[in-house]
């Protein structure tokens, strides 16, 4: 902060209205709007320009408040306390009948469990990290289902071949653990993981 800025700040502190007819609130709005549309009465006012510079500086140093707050970034105890507090079946979704249980039993799986199966099948496939998983069609025993997945793929993976392996793997897992048939598995490549520099040579 140069001396004229600090002089301006003092002026602001004492007389907040002495900004050639503008207020700090207006200047902050102007800053938030990236100084558009240009306002000549602000741009031409040295007092306003100094105040804007001070506001920007305040904004720049603000994140330090958080970083210097002594909040340990990797506190595993704390993380496990949080994780212990969440109800794992919160997103289970609807139940579907997994297999006929006869007159005295209802044997079901949650949609969330099936999503989890597809997700871990995909994660196991080299080069892929799974995102969201969706099903289209009903999930009664014997039904045909369309599986839609979003994936991140490693840089350098030949996508068509790898996606085929992924589809087969997912279809096989569904065939093994349900009475459904995956009529189609959509693999939507949402992201390509960039090669790391500075990693293993």
């Amino acid at each position: 902060m140069d001396e004229s800025t600090s002089a301006a700040l003092e002026a602001i502190a004492r007389e907040p209205d002495d900004l050639d007819g503008h207020t700090i609130a207006q200047l902050a709005d102007y800053l938030d709007a990236d100084r558009t549309p240009p306002d000549p009465t602000i741009d031409a006012s040295p007092a306003c320009q100094h105040a804007l510079a001070a506001l920007e500086r305040l904004r720049r140093v603000a994140p330090e408040l958080l970083l210097d707050d002594g909040a340990p970034p990797d506190d595993e105890d704390w993380v496990s306390r949080v994780m212990g507090g969440i109800a794992l079946d919160a997103h289970a979704g609807a139940d579907f009948v997994l297999v006929d249980g006869g007159p005295d039993a209802r044997l079901v799986m949650t949609e969330g469990a099936l999503r989890g199966l597809v997700r871990s099948a995909g994660d196991d496939e080299p080069g892929f990290l799974m995102g969201r998983v969706r099903f289209e069609g009903d999930l009664d025993p014997g039904a045909e289902v369309v599986v839609r997945t979003g994936v991140t793929v490693a840089h350098g993976v030949p996508i068509p071949e790898a996606a085929d392996r992924l589809r087969q793997h997912i279809a096989a897992v569904i065939a093994r653990h349900t009475r459904l048939r995956a009529s189609r598995v959509d693999v939507d490549v949402e992201d390509v993981d960039a090669p790391r520099d500075g990693g293993a040579a």
Binding site: M83, R119, F128, L129, G131, R132, T152, G199
Partner: peptide, 30 residues
């Protein structure tokens, strides 16, 4: 080929998985 790992995944991917019920992804966000 370096398979992407969950710990380095984007916020968007992690949030999507967490919304699907993946507690591991949520733990990474936490």
């Amino acid at each position: 080929v370096r398979t992407p790992v969950l710990d380095e995944a984007s916020d968007a991917l992690l949030a999507g998985r967490a919304a699907d019920g993946d507690a591991r992804a949520f733990a990474v966000l936490v």
